[in-house]
Every structure is written in C-alpha cells, then in structure tokens.
Nucleic acid binder design. Structure first.
Lengths: 346, 346
DNA sequence: CTGAAAGCGCTTACAG
DNA sequence: CTGAAAGCGCTTACAG
C-alpha cells in the first residue's frame, strides 16, 4: 500500500528542487520564486500529491481538526449541535473528530485523553464536567477546550449554554397568565443538565406566579414514549391539571398522542407546551406551543469561541455565554385567553 | 504549550529505560520483562503520559480512525447512520472523523483527498460516486473505502445499500391490494439516490399492479414543508387520488397536516403512506403506514465491512449488500380493507 | 529482554 | 530565493 503513495520526496525529485522548496511552494510561503512555485504546484497536481496529515501535524504541531466529545451522536439535539459546529468548521476549513461515550465517565475520560495529537482543541458536552478533577485529570494538557451546556464551579474553561432555567420560567409564566392554575411538568432525564435546569425553572416559576399551587412532576426521559406514559398518568389524576408543560417537544408529542387516544382535547380540555421547537412542533395538530432554542447556534458559537482560544495560543475568554430561548405560542395553549400565534408559522 | 506536554522521552528518562522499551511496555508487546513493564506503566500513569496520536500514526502507519464523508451531518437519516457507525466504531475502538460537503462536488473531492494521513479507511455516501473518475481522482491512493447507498457502474468498491426500489414496490402493492386505484407519489430530491430509487419503484409497481393507472408525481425535497405543499396540491386535483405515497415520512407528515387543515380525513377520505418509519410515525394521528428501514444497521454493516477490508490490507469483499425494508401497516392505510396493524406498535 | 538507530513524511530555523 | 539538516514523537527491525 505505502508503495503506491506519493510523498513530498517524489514531488521534489520530479521538480528537481529540495523538499523544503516543495513544502514552501505548496504552503504558499512568500519566499519562493514565482516560476518555481508554479512548476512545483503543477508537478504536485500531476502526481496527485496529497500531504500526509499525520506527518504535517507532527512537525507543524497543528492538526487542523477539532474534537467534539458528546454523550451521544444521535437525536435531534446532538444532530443540530453537530450541524451548527460543522457549518463553522467548514468555514474555517477545520476537520471534526467526533466521539460519544454514552454515559460512562471512564469511557469519556478515555475519549478525552485519546485526543492528544489528534486535535487542536476540544468541544465538550459532559455531565461529569463538574466532578472535581474530572476535567483536569482527563483533558490533555495545553489543549484549549470549550464546554457546552455545563455547569462549572470554577471558571477554568469557557462555557456556552442555553438559558433553560429562564426558558422554563417564561413558559410557566405564559401558562399562568393564560389562566391555568394547575400545571403539570414532565421531567427529562435526571442526569441531563438541560432537564434539571428546566425542572428548576418550573419549580421556581410555579412558586412565583402561582403561589400555593401544588407542583405535579411526572418522570420522563426526553423520548416520545415517556411523554406518552406521562400523558396517560396525568389523565388518571383525581384532580386533573389544566395544563401540561413537557421538558421537551418529543415528550409533549407523546403526551399529545395519549390525550388524543383518550379523547381529551388540546387546548380545550387541557393546554400543552413543550421545549425545543423541533420542526414537527408546527406540524402536529394542534400546533405546539414551545420554547425555541437554537442548538445549531449554540454549537457554532462554541466552536467560534474555541477557534479564538486556539488562535490566542490557548488564552481563552472565560466569560460565560448564555443563549435565551424564545417563547413560541401556538394552538396548543390558545384556549383560555385569545392569544394569537406568532406570524411566520405555517 | 508544548513545554507542558510529556513525551515518551520523559517517561523513558524517569523510568531509566530506553524509549523503545517504554513503547513496547505501553503497547503490550510480549518481549518486556514483567517488572520493567509494571514500572514503566506506573511511571507513565503518574506522569499522565498520553502518546501523541500523530507521531504514532506516522510511524505505525495506522491512525485508528475512520473517515465518514456524508452530504450532510444533519437530519434523521444521517443522524441514525452516524449512530450505527458509532456503535461499531466504539466496539472496535476506532475514532470517527466526519465530513460533510453539502452538495458541492469539488468540496467533496477536497474532503476526500484531505483524508490522507488522517484515517485508515473511508465510508462514503456520495451522489457523485458514479461520475466517471470521481472516486479514482479523489480517493487517496490505497485507502480502503466502502460506499453507502450508491450506484456504481463498476464494482471497484464494496457498496451497502437499502433496497429502496423493492420497498417502494411493496408499498404500492400494499395500497393497490387494499383497493386503491389512484395513487399519488410525493417525490424526494432529484439528486438523492434513495429518492430516485423509490420513484422508480413507484412507477414500476404502478405499471405492474395497476396497469393503465396514471402516475401522479408531486415534487418534494424530503422536508415536511414540501410534503405540506404537495398535500395542498393533491387536494386541488380534479380527480382526487384515493391514496398518497410520500417518498419519506417527513413529507407524509407534512401532507397529513395539509389534509387535516382541509378537513380531509385519513384514511377515510384518502390513504397515506410514508417511507423510513421515523419514531414519530407511530405518534401522529392516524398512525402512519410506512416502510421501516434500519439506517443504523446500514451504517454498522458498512463499517464492519470496511474494518474487514482494512484488516485484509485493503483487499475488500466486493459483493454488494442490500438491506430489505419492512412494510409497517398502521392506521393511515387501514380503511378500504380491514388489515390489522402489526403488533409491537404502541 | 533491551538499547541504539533508522525511519515515518513533513516543516522550519539556519546558512548561504 | 534555496538547500541541507534537524526535529516533531513515536515504532520497529536489527543486534546483542
């Protein structure tokens, strides 16, 4: 295999110059005679020469790639996040090395450590980031990193996140102002930072806007089926809630399905709201009120910040950056008061 | 930055052995005295030594990483595909370098070429794969590759794909057997291989099962909104179809929304079927009849095949492998004849 | 079982 | 503007 591959030496020989000159010519350095440059470029392309990335990385100490370490690669959230990262990466001609670890701290530690020599910086979304020593033990020395949706005791790394707390608060407030008195909440996974923050927002807003109202919290895991189960559970409550706030849209859709099945009308019998504003939120019947968060933007901003840190030779701007979700009112909460849906929705 | 990083030399010095011995000890070679091995391992871990991937790749001629080149990183399909690939990659402790090119042939060519020295093999999903010379011009020499969902004139590379043609045929047959006479089809993007195959299947099955029936093909691009538009268009047909087959579920959902909006009942007034069996297909009302395809499995199989080729030093098994979709009958086509939904659906 | 040395394919001061 | 040489951090025959 190696035999068939052309190296910088082959180009140098063919062009009758030194490998140093080939390197300079191909990398666009100034100090190469124009004629020589052209000649080298031509030979290189004729030979289909492609620099060996590992060799280049080793000597230039730069990989032109960014490591992205996530709990999972699957699902709307990660998919969107990766998309946002990808857009910025492509604009800067960076490669993306992705890694998932599916919830094992050791596995993630390993994933993090294995990044040495592979990437110029790291984007990490980790529920373990706040464990004492986790990051310092596992992040390769001197590798700039930006954390996403993470809580961090000390500001050792830049953190970019969604204001889930504020978003949940705003939704509860919307429901309360619409006249709902008994608002149930379908929780997300307990080990999920966003989910915890949304729950915290629900509780806090309940205390603020509906003092004295009892919290009704149903378990959920962000999947439709858990929303479906929660929906069925809600219908068995002796004192049925008049509104349901699901910690994400997928669960809201599952819940909606349970209501449909039972003949319970949304929003006439009960209001329903989600979180995320996934594309389908506007295609279900009734259309779903939700909080819009721009996951792609989050990913893009995180990478931009990381790129800055890399440029600055590892010196990062540690100011935390928080993205505010936007309330999107649609049909599913439009009963009590006559609010109008936002324009722009189909 | 470089200063703070510990290399194999540091470990060797600290352990009072040669770098060669450190290398052998850490890589689990047999020919190292047990005591020495332990000692070296201990020093290495105390120093938090982590081998530099680029250096290792360069000398061992192996990167332990797989390149995944896709049109896009976003959406249900790619997300699932990456997930399937990820599972197998993790099992084999391979890293994943992902790359998207959003429809530009030149950009994809560049992405492909840039893989030299970064990966041990390539998984590629490309609409340009059948262009003469595209692959040979751009695939780094001697890099094993497996193509996904691609048509290839010559069997130069292994190809793994979904039997979209067969799936579409089966769906049309299902609709025809249920008594539908006039079946409309909402197409996917023209440059999409799966979409073209499904269209081909629709046409072929129409000719076979409903000879004489007129084909009614609506444009679409796999997004909900195009399905919504197609749905509205269908309702304006002077001779309204009694069934609609959308080239994917997302469009079927958009179409369903248009029908709902117009007060047209599914399946009473018109039957509706999709393709893909996305999770939401069973959560809409009515639940959606569709063809289930296991994208994750496709990705996993593709990587397994690639891993084999790499093991075999680039000698690949060129037998094409095709995954058959499975017909999932749900409520949206359950009018004309009294078929029962498959068990296992919520 | 161990070390010295060559080599992987580049880049980059250093001279000229 | 150009080349010879050192070096990036590893691995792996080759001797011993």
């Amino acid at each position: 295999m190696a035999r068939t591959t052309v190296t910088i030496k082959d180009v140098a020989r063919e062009a009758s110059v030194s490998v140093a000159t080939v390197s300079r010519a191909l990398n666009g350095h100034e100090n190469v005679a124009e004629g020589v440059r052209k000649h080298v470029v031509e030979i290189a392309s004729r030979l289909r020469y492609q620099p060996h990335a590992a060799a280049r990385s080793l000597s230039s100490r730069s990989t032109q790639t960014i490591g992205v370490v996530l709990p999972d690669l699957y699902g709307e959230f990660f998919s969107e996040l990766i998309r946002g990262i990808d857009v910025v990466a492509r604009a800067h001609r960076k490669h993306l090395l992705v890694s998932s670890y599916h919830g094992h701290p050791e596995e993630q530690g390993e994933a993090l450590r294995a990044m040495r020599g592979r990437v110029d910086g790291l984007l990490v979304l980790s529920p373990y980031a706040d464990r004492p020593g986790f990051l310092t033990d596992n992040l390769p020395t001197a590798l700039p990193a930006v954390l996403i949706n993470t809580q961090l005791a000390d500001a050792a790394y830049p953190v970019l996140s969604i204001d889930n707390f504020g978003g949940a608060t705003a939704m509860v407030r919307h429901l309360a102002e619409a006249g709902h008195q008994r608002i149930a909440f379908i929780c997300g996974p307990e080990d999920n930072f966003d989910a915890r923050e949304r729950l915290r927002g629900y509780r806090s807003a309940l205390a603020e806007y509906l003092p004295g109202a009892e919290a009704l919290e149903l378990p959920g895991d962000f999947d439709e089926s858990s929303g479906y189960e929660a929906g069925k559970l809600i219908l068995t409550e002796k004192q049925r809630p008049d509104a349901v706030f699901a910690a994400n849209d997928m669960m809201a859709l599952g819940c909606l399905y349970a209501f449909n099945e039972a003949g319970v009308k949304v929003p006439t019998d009960i209001a329903l709201a989600g979180f995320d504003d996934i594309p389908l939120a506007r295609f279900v019947h009734p259309t779903l009120t939700t909080m819009r968060i721009s996951i792609a933007e989050l990913g893009g901003l995180a990478l931009s910040r990381l790129l800055q840190a890399i440029e600055a030779d590892g010196v990062a701007d540690l100011t935390p950056h928080t993205l505010a979700p936007e309330l999107i009112v649609r049909e599913s909460t439009l009963h009590a008061t006559r609010q109008r849906a936002k324009a722009g929705d189909i």
